[in-house]
Every structure is written in structure tokens, then in C-alpha cells.
Write a protein that binds this DNA or RNA. Structure first.
Lengths: 360, 360
DNA sequence: TGCGTTCTCTGAAGCGCTTAAGACATGCTG
DNA sequence: CAGCATGTCTTAAGCGCTTCAGAGAACGCA
């Protein structure tokens, strides 16, 4: 295509130049033990002279039925992905794990329906797909199945035939809510990231929120709500706010809306650290003392949680371990082995400085 | 391979089932105008019935000589990439730009020599490569050339035949240094990220630092040093510290080492916001008032710079624009057009609260 | 009616590589 | 010296798809 790129030499060119068969040249690159080292050297020299950089990856893949890449499917745009430390860490661990076996990551960012467009998935050059927190019923998942690609899902409902790793979202949320109840709080508000496949932004009822297309959302919400209900909190009075995006600024705006309500909540349950950090910013702007007048708890325990001022009370999950495990599962499926039973990773409440006794 | 994955049907299977030629089935998927819509519907129905999800991407690529992916080559591991907001933003903008034309990003993380291993590049399934701040002479660059892949370089020395976009690193550094000189500072220290291909961590002379394998490092350093020298500062007295990694904690440690020296510097020139934010943390731990006792300036103006406490004085570059431009250049090369002359994007000093008059 | 178009569909040649199977010469064993 | 293993290289059949160059039939127009 590129006019500047003139035709690259092929195996046949090298074979012709040296006067051997194409197979021998292929072996020179792939199976050095299959030919005399003298001939091999000659072939490699000729290749270099002709500007042959080695077997064409695409042609090789067609012949071997192996690409050497793993498709990573996100719900969000790449931007949101990278600005979310929780995802970054998981992705990194995954990349490291599969890199060891020579697999690179092909990024398939989200489109409009809670995941990448099906067309992208169908034409992706990959041996396996990893789905990270896609919306239920995302078209991408169907496309993966149609193609017969092995699949690893992270923080999503189980897909038959695929490997799965997820987090004890509900347990973590319960622990967070219980912690605040123990501190005497009774007026709560909940901050949620995007709930529905079609993001909206703004207040919603707990009922609406429970209809979230995202499993981790539903689980965390259920953990909060069940715990509050069990403690006798009138949950229909608990406002839930969906942020309009994932940036910290958007989180701050959402938190502001919640904090400007009367009566003002004394405790904010946030479904991620980024939301919680936005809430801290909103509180600061209003001159609200945290934790004196407002307690905030996050989820994930990503690095910024401990840098924050005040340091964030949050639910720790092993992000790195999650990614590593997902990578190992991927390698396992690629090796032709069966997916093991789904794994749920434990969480742990980390109490820091952003939560305190309820005021008054 | 995967024993669970049974043979997927091919174009021929569909053609056989419908009783048409393979070409016609191909056309049904790729060029709907080449056949009657009745037949097309029948073919699509048959495909669905047989579980044929569309043309195999690899085979299609072999025939069309087009993959639909762009290799993104990093110096660092994926982790560092994602924890660096400057890179995240650039990468996102790039991804968005090329996504519009149907290209996904293939991530090639760094190995040991200032970029991904050559072997990974040679076997990467991509139509074009983007190099982001690789070390000079990284093997990956040679591999790209050997393969005859089009190349876009970001923040790197120009490579003949490739497109290039970079930042006015030197100008930005000069502005930062001048700002501090104007505030009366005379005792400086410089914090640098990884300088050499082989990271070391620790103090280094400005001479060593100028031998950095990374162009942006050299340029920023030169900007600082030239400006200080021109103002009569004894530059051999200015300590330079290379951090041992890119995390904020590592930056804080490096800054701590600098702040514990006697006489303590009153101004810290940091080659990135992340380093500067680490420095703020180190100052806080030591009870140093910023900007009363210490001024800190960063580079990049990524979002966390303005959230910081105190908000960071820094050199703004248009990270999003840089990524978008790189993406456009990539598309341009893919369209077979010639690379335009290298572009250098302007920068701008943003004065916030982390810099003030020199104490005393 | 005759002839050039247009519409549909087919044949066949690749794209560049891997790999099973086999040819041939050589060395080794008993 | 027969017989067998070993080492070296070749032949040829794919991998699954795209696309150029037609073949026929149906159609329009003068």
C-alpha cells in the first residue's frame, strides 16, 4: 500500500538466492537443528543481504493458527481505562503474565453498548479474548463466542466454557457499610460509576441502580443496601448518584450534588477510590471536615487512596493478583486445557483517616 | 490448539452449503453490491446456521496485506505506562484517532534495552509502529526498519523516513528554570526519571545525565542547565538525581535524598509531574513548607498537577493533541502518503502554588 | 433485430508461510 | 557386508481468504 514501502523479500526470494528449498530457509529461522549450521549461516547471511527480516507474522499465523496476541476488551474508552488505577494495575499484571509466553495485548476499547463493537472483535487478530467488566449481554461477548475464541472474564458474570476471576464485591461493600454503621452513621449516600449500558449521570433510585448492566456495580450496591437494610436504615431514603463519567472532576460534581442535599448525608459509600477521591475534593471545596462532618469510603485501594489527604478508608482488593491470575488462566486456556472453576478473590477493609464517628 | 475449540467453518463450507462459489460468499460479507440481495440473505443465513462468524481475520490479512492494528512501542513496562498520566492521555488520544479508521492498538511493552525486544517487533501483527520515547538506538527501531514498517515517533530523535511529533522540551525547561531564577532562587536540584538504557537510580553528575539515552531527558536537562548557567549559577554544584523507577513513592525517596543535603536546595526542577508530586510528598513528610521553604516545578501538566496540594507549577504540554496528531500521522502514512516534516508542539509555563520567592 | 451494457456469479491465481512425508547419502552396528 | 538409524534437504499440500479477469444471461436502445 504505502508507496514508500517497496515489496519486502519473502522466504522464496531467500531460497532462490541461496539455491535451497523454501522449507530449508523456514527451518533456518524456526528449527535450527534441522539443517547444518554452515548452511544455516549462509541462509541467514543471504537473508540479511536481501533485507529479509524473518518470516512474515501474518503468513506465519495463518499457517500455525497462532497469533501471539490477546484481545483485551474494555467497557470504556482507553482514556478512562488508563486514568483508572485499578484497571491499570490489573492490566499490567495481565500483560506481564502473558508476555512471558510471548503474547502481546491488543486493546479493544469500548463502544456504545458496554463493550467493544462486535465487528472489532470479529476482526481482531488474537488467540484469546479477555473481557474486563463488560456490561451484561455486551455484543462483544457474543462475537467472541461466535468466533470460538477462548475467553477469560474478569469481574463479570460467568460465561459457560470460559475462565473467570472476580472479586468479592458484595462482601467488600458489606464490610464498608458495616464499618460506617458501627461508627454511628445513619444518613448515607451512595456514589456509583456508570450503571446502565447507556450512561446517564444523575440521581437514581436503588431499584434502578440494581438493574445495572454491570455485575460489580450490582454486587457492591447490593452489599451496601442489604447491610443498611439489615441495620434498619430506610434505604429508599438513601440517594444513589451515578456519575456522568469516570474522571475525578466528574466524581467531585456528583458528590457535590449529594452533599448539597438536605439533610446532608454524613457518610458516603463510593464504588471506587476515584469516586471517593472526587468526593474528598467536593467536601474540601465546601469546607466540610473529613472525617469530622463527613465520612467517605472507597473501593479498590489503589495507590492514590493512601496518598490522599485524608488517607482514604477503602476496601482493598488484590488488583495485581487479579491480573496475574487472569493471565495465568489465559495461558492455561491457550495451552488447550479446560477452564478451572471460577475464582472469587477476597477483599479486606482498610481503615484509614477518611472515616470517623458520625457527627452529633 | 485448544481442544475445546472445534474446527470453525470456513468460507468454503458456507459456499458448499449454499451451492455457490467461494467468491460469492466472500462478496456477501465484503461487497454486498456484488450480488443480489436475495442470494446474499441466503448466504448470511447459511453462515449463521453453520456458525460461521465471518472471514478469518488472519487469512484476510494475508490476502489484503492489512492487519488493522498499530503497534505501540514503549520504553517501560505496561505498569509504568499506565501509572503515568502523561502517557495515558497521549495513548488514549492516539487510540481514539486511529480507532476511527478501524485500527486497534497492539501494546509492545519495554524490555531491557530502552524498548521492546526486537523479536517482539518482528513478530508483531501490525501495519505500522509508533515509538514513544524509546532510548536512542533501541533495537526495536532497527527491527521496525528491517521489517519495512511505517513508523511514527513521539518525543524521540527523528528517524529518516518516519513521521515525528515531539514537544519543545528544552523551551519548557528553560521557562521553568527562568521562573525560579526570577523568584530569586540560587540553590537548585534536578530530579530526573530513568536516564540511561540501564536504569541505575541515585545521584549523577550533569555530565552523566546529559549522556541520557532519552531525548526528552537530555532536552529538558539542557534547558535547565543552560538557563542556570546563563544566570551564573554554578551548575556543577547542582545535584541531579535519577529516580529508580517511575512510581510516586520512588520519586518521594529520591526527593528526600535531595532535601536532606546541606545546603538544602530551595528549588526542585522535576522532569515530570509525577516526580514533582513525589517531591511534594517528601517535603510534607519533612515538614517543609511549599512554597515557603521549597519551590517545586513539574513538567507535563497532567491532571494530578492541579489537584495537588499545593497545586503544582508546571510546564504544560498538549498531551491530548500530541496523541491525536500522532494518530493522524499514522493514518496518513497508512494511506501511503509521505511523512510531513517533523512537528514540535509548543509548551507553556503554568504558575500555580508550588513555587514562590526564595527564602531568606 | 443486433449490439453494447449491466448485473450476477465463477475460476483460478495468488498472499507467505509451516509441516508431514519422503528421498538420498552417510555412518554405525553386529 | 547387510541393515538400520541419523542427518540433511526437498516435495507438495495446505492455512482461509481476496480479487482480477472473465462467462452468461438479461436488458436497453436504436
Amino acid at each position: 500500500m504505502a508507496s514508500t514501502r517497496r515489496r519486502q523479500p519473502t522466504l522464496d526470494d531467500v531460497a532462490g538466492a541461496v539455491g535451497v528449498s523454501r522449507t530449508t530457509v523456514s527451518n533456518a529461522f524456526n528449527r535450527p537443528d534441522q539443517l547444518s549450521s554452515a548452511l544455516r549461516d549462509e541462509i541467514l547471511r543471504a537473508a540479511k543481504r536481501l533485507g529479509y527480516a524473518g518470516p512474515d507474522p501474518v503468513a506465519r499465523s495463518l499457517a500455525t493458527k497462532r497469533v501471539g496476541a490477546i484481545a483485551f476488551m474494555l467497557d470504556t474508552a482507553v482514556s478512562a481505562a488508563f486514568s483508572d488505577p485499578a484497571l491499570s494495575i490489573t492490566l499490567d499484571a495481565l500483560a506481564t503474565a502473558v508476555d512471558a509466553e510471548g503474547h502481546a495485548l491488543l486493546l479493544l476499547p469500548g463502544g456504545d453498548h458496554g463493550g467493544p463493537p462486535a465487528g472489532r472483535v470479529l476482526s481482531a487478530q488474537a488467540d484469546l479474548a479477555v473481557a474486563y467488566s463488560l456490561a451484561d449481554g455486551a455484543p462483544a461477548l457474543r462475537a467472541v463466542r461466535d468466533r470460538g475464541l477462548p475467553l477469560v472474564v474478569i469481574d463479570q458474570p460467568h460465561v459457560p466454557g470460559s475462565a473467570r476471576v472476580s472479586t468479592d464485591d458484595r462482601g467488600g461493600a458489606e464490610a464498608a457499610a458495616r464499618h460506617l454503621l458501627d461508627l454511628g452513621h445513619r444518613r448515607f449516600a451512595i456514589m456509583s460509576a456508570q450503571c446502565l449500558s447507556e450512561p446517564r449521570g444523575g440521581p437514581m433510585t436503588t431499584g434502578e441502580a440494581m438493574g445495572s448492566a454491570f455485575r460489580d456495580n450490582r454486587e457492591r450496591l447490593a452489599g451496601y443496601v442489604d447491610t443498611l437494610v439489615a441495620a434498619g436504615v430506610a434505604v429508599e431514603q438513601v440517594p444513589v448518584w451515578e456519575t456522568s463519567g469516570t474522571s475525578r472532576e466528574q466524581a467531585a460534581q456528583a458528590a457535590g450534588a449529594l452533599l448539597d442535599r438536605e439533610p446532608r448525608p454524613t457518610a458516603l459509600l463510593c464504588m471506587s477510590d476515584e469516586l471517593a477521591l472526587g468526593a474528598l475534593a467536593a467536601a474540601r471545596r465546601r469546607g466540610l471536615d473529613v472525617p469530622g462532618e463527613l465520612s467517605v469510603v472507597g473501593f479498590d485501594d489503589a495507590p492514590p487512596a493512601s496518598w490522599a489527604e485524608p488517607a482514604l478508608t477503602t476496601v482493598r482488593q488484590d488488583l495485581h493478583g487479579k491480573g496475574t491470575l487472569a493471565g495465568e488462566l489465559a495461558l492455561r486456556l491457550l495451552a488447550g486445557r479446560k477452564p478451572p472453576p471460577p475464582v472469587t478473590l477476597p477483599v479486606e477493609l482498610v481503615v484509614r483517616a477518611s472515616t470517623g464517628r458520625a457527627p452529633g
